[in-house]
């Protein structure tokens, strides 16, 4: 077995990203869509940190900082939107939110 290198981490990142994408596309529960989004962001973070390590650039790790901050902001705003929506209409199923459907 070859020693673990950059390709191993990139393949793991690709698998995790696809898993998250599957959740975003397939699930109708908005909470689980958010959870899948977090999974996708983490997959990107793995790729960034692995690239930083194996290409010897610290910039990849700084980028992960920014991604984590953006993810935290995204979760806060998204969940606040969800709570505000829930007050209007008590559902978290994306199928039931069809007020803008023509």
């Amino acid at each position: 077995m070859t020693p673990v290198g950059l390709p191993h981490y990139l393949v793991l990142s690709a698998l995790l990203f696809s898993l998250g994408l599957l959740g975003v596309v397939l699930r109708r529960n908005l909470l689980i869509v958010f959870i899948s989004l977090e999974l996708m962001l983490n997959a990107a973070n793995i790729a960034l940190v692995a690239s930083a390590r194996f290409l010897n650039r610290i910039g990849g790790q700084e980028m992960v900082f920014v991604v984590i901050a953006v993810a935290a902001a995204e979760v806060a705003v998204g969940l606040a939107l969800l709570a505000a929506l829930y007050r209007q209409r008590p559902t978290v199923q994306s199928n039931d939110l069809d007020a803008l459907k023509f």
Binding site: A14, L15, L55
Partner: peptide, 16 residues
């Protein structure tokens, strides 16, 4: 998608 990204990653190789 996973296979595509993995193929690209494996083709690129990288410093061991």
């Amino acid at each position: 998608l996973a296979a595509l990204i993995s193929a690209a990653a494996l083709a690129g190789g990288g410093p061991a």
